[in-house]
Design a protein around this nucleic acid. Structure first.
Lengths: 191, 191
DNA sequence: TTGTATAATGAATATTTATTCATTAATATT
DNA sequence: AATATTAATGAATAAATATTCATTATACAA
């Protein structure tokens, strides 16, 4: 008797992300993936029915994980700006530390593999942050003449650019920089 | 004697963009492409040596075109805010009207097809806008305590999000909205 | 220990996709 | 109108890639 080594699933996921950053989903083949993960191609099919299922599961896993990370440590008893900063930094750090994942999520979103249900879930992820912005308005700290969605997009877009440029070594973020960037973001939405 | 019908090149490009928005570069096959363009697969090889060459050329063409569009109509004699608004709107409109192209450019950037030279050129595209921001500082209209790159990223990121949400029908832009969005962008960088 | 069930392997096979090429169609030239 | 030249076609072939499966290795139970 011999039992499955489920740690291989994560091994494969990590190998996949690494390859996708380099050559996109278009460049991902099962043999390259197996080689990168250090296992045989056949072994992939012990843990996944097909390439499609493999990518679907990777997406679902990352989606679930990132949802958790965004609001982590947020405490509604703290002042609004403090809370916003926490969530803002959460997202920036997430984009940087898990850059490979972000690249995958965006590529997957426009691949032949994504399902309608998965598209739905992606949209619902924004809700908590929009509610946070609303709190800022209620406390008369955030501009009321712009709707939550627009303010959200301004914050989100800036973070994405910052993270992308940092990871590709075009604009390096350090503590000072990051602090400044948040002040700029705050300037954008504050009354 | 019979001459080549070079209009087919553009036909193929357009068909390609359409398909790539739906299923990414990962989903693009030469036969799907031919079918979408309404020609035979063999005909593709009259105008392009290979799939790789086809995508390389599409990229080069779009790159050249978009470079032109960003600064179009900019007049250094007009006031700074007016000029910035023009460029800002240029880019927003470009992202919306040529959404398919934008999707392609981003996908291509992380595909097995891109060349080192092409990566270079992409980076150099930002230069004119950064110079514009510098002009704003010189005229004491733009915050001096944030560097040009950071201010640029804040503007760019917001535009990208706006355009993406508009095209995917999540956040529809009209004239009023767009006007507001620019005011928010201006708030972000102005002293 | 030994037997046995199942994980792991990777070469073999199936499938998909890129590319070629023999054939047909179109059009410029005579 | 006849001829010649090249575009266009799409089925045939080549190449790349996904998937299977006969074989081997491993680890648990008896």
């Amino acid at each position: 008797m011999r039992s499955k080594d489920y740690s291989k699933i994560d091994l494969v996921f990590r190998a996949g992300l690494k390859l996708i950053v380099k050559e996109g989903i278009a460049g991902l083949t099962m043999s390259k993936l197996a080689k990168q993960a250090g296992i045989a191609t056949g072994t992939l099919y012990i843990y996944f029915k097909s390439k499609e299922e493999l990518l679907n599961k990777l997406y679902d896993k990352l989606q679930a994980e990132s949802k958790q990370r965004f609001m982590k440590g947020y405490d509604p008893d703290e002042p609004f700006r403090t809370g916003l900063k926490r969530v803002w930094l959460n997202y920036l750090k997430h984009r940087i530390e898990r850059y490979e994942e972000s690249v995958f999520l965006e590529q997957y979103y426009r691949s032949p593999f994504i399902t309608a249900e998965q598209k739905q879930i992606a949209e619902s992820m924004k809700q908590p942050v929009k509610e946070l912005i609303q709190r800022g308005k209620d406390e008369k700290l955030v501009k009321k003449d712009f709707d939550n969605e627009m303010l959200f997009l301004a914050l989100l877009g800036f973070i994405r650019e910052l993270a992308d440029e940092h990871v590709t070594n075009v604009y390096i973020l350090n503590e000072e920089n990051t602090e400044k960037a948040f002040r700029l973001a705050w300037d954008t939405i504050k009354i």
